[in-house]
Design a protein around this nucleic acid. Structure first.
Lengths: 212, 212
DNA sequence: AGAGTATTGAACAACAATGTTCAATACTTT
DNA sequence: AAAGTATTGAACATTGTTGTTCAATACTCT
């Protein structure tokens, strides 16, 4: 019984699943180190003992929840990109996936916004595939910004997306508007010409594919 | 002795000043609700009793530190803008003030980055003056984005600045590079033409004026 | 030097959260 | 229906934090 707990959703028993769901919401609302076992149990609709049966500490739980979220989102986006090769189009879609999901799953969104900067596990969501796509876009002359700006461009894009998610979570904008406008602004910053930036940012957004 | 504590720096006795400085750093490092009185006392180089002499709770302290930071930065930027009327130039300067300061005062930067999204007091740093400057820029036809995008543009700009500050804090970029590149990208997104965006973003950055 | 004020550091009770244990109960599975 | 497994909820000692008190000490004015 000393082995590390499994991270994949499939390997989770029902109680653990409920605990993870409750944890996502509590962490998002109160902060990473602010969740105690009793309230977690209550939020998950589970006895305090069950928490201790299933996990060792809330700190570890946080890591698990974060890296699970990362893996899941990464896979789903990757799957959706099977059909899309244009880097600019990928960018426009990826940006809006995040913003729409913040609307559809606000707890997910709040969690992501709160910890995206500070949690290593979440970081790869934009230092991984997005960075490659930006490079590809440069290689294919799709973008015009100087190559030395790549890291800053990546930061700008991810920061913009996070801020747009906040806008949506707080009800100031619809996901559609914030999503398309953000995509358009970013594409313009990268050097895509105005008309095309606008067109790309309004392409119909497919559903985020399920995994398995 | 029941009156609320004064917020202005001038009205702070030396011990309180040290406590605030230590608090900034601890909050930035560990999170808002994670700082306990004993470690705060130790970090401030002060006895635990002194903490209780000077303040009522660390929660209140957090609010004080945040709103003080906001007020101070706001005043200093406002003072610097006395001489600058062009909205685009103001934007280019304002953006780089934040990014440079993250380099010069990393604890300040970490605090700001960590709480800028979630803390109301800090929010006005970009929903206040920057919003007005953006509107002015539109009215003066300095920018070309549609007026309905104003809120999203504001989000994009602030999110980009935060992300650039992270880049600098982690040593991936110099403040100069991250600052100018971020300003350039944002100006391009707003519709400033490439050459001018570049020029504006490399204008010499004056020192952040002192207050009083 | 002397009055007024703030800091110090130790002590204390009250509380909240932790980590463990365990017998009773509930649920799967075959 | 019986065996195997997980959940339940209560109990408990332990720890860390809080908020308060206070006499001794240090600091700052005029």
């Amino acid at each position: 019984m000393e082995a590390a707990k499994e991270l994949s959703k499939e390997a989770m028993n029902p109680a653990l699943k409920r605990i993870h769901r409750a944890a996502l919401s509590l962490f998002a609302e109160k902060g990473a180190g602010q969740v105690n076992v009793s309230e977690l149990a209550q939020a998950a609709g589970v006895a305090r003992g069950t928490i201790y049966n299933n996990l060792n500490s809330t700190d570890l739980l946080f890591e698990q929840v974060a890296s699970q979220l990362e893996a899941e989102m990464h896979q789903r986006i990757a799957k959706s990109f099977d059909l899309v090769t244009d880097p600019a189009q990928r960018l426009s879609i990826g940006i809006r996936f995040f913003i729409r999901r913040a609307h559809e799953e606000p707890e997910w969104g709040r969690f992501f916004v709160r910890f995206a900067f500070s949690t290593l596990a979440l970081r790869s969501l934009w230092t991984g595939q997005p960075a490659l796509d930006l490079k590809n876009g440069l290689d294919q002359q799709r973008y015009t910004f100087p190559r030395e700006q790549l890291a800053t461009v990546l930061a700008m894009a991810s920061g913009s997306v996070l801020a747009a998610m906040v806008l949506v979570l707080e009800g100031h904008k619809t996901w559609r508007e914030a999503g398309s406008d953000t995509a358009e602004l970013i594409l313009k910053a990268l050097g895509i010409e105005n008309a095309e930036a606008r067109a790309l940012s309004r392409l119909e957004l497919p559903p985020l594919p399920a995994i398995d």
